[in-house]
Amino acid sequence: MLTCKEFLAELSDFLDERTDTEIRSKLEKHIAECPNCWVICDTTKKTISVYKGMKSCAVPEDVHSRLMAALERKMAAASVAKK
């Protein structure tokens, strides 16, 4: 049977379904027999789930305006250089 440390080392790949069949069955056997690792696996899965798609904060309007103004200056300079 895998040790808990070995289980943890494979946890990310297990949750991302990137382990091969043989390792996957060993990991499944481990969590079936180890309550602590079952909890870690379940709560890590939920951790990923609650963060998935978390919105980024809107960029403050003044920051966005400065970015657009800098871009306009850049475009104007590029247009002058082409003439």
């Binding site: 990310s12 709560t43 890590t44 609650v50």
Partner: peptide, 20 residues
């Protein structure tokens, strides 16, 4: 990336356990 992702996930899991 994989090793840093695992650490990040486990650290966040620890922090969230307090609330969840």
């Amino acid at each position: 990336v994989k090793s840093r992702l695992l650490r990040a996930r486990l650290q966040l899991r620890d922090k969230l356990t307090r609330f969840f």
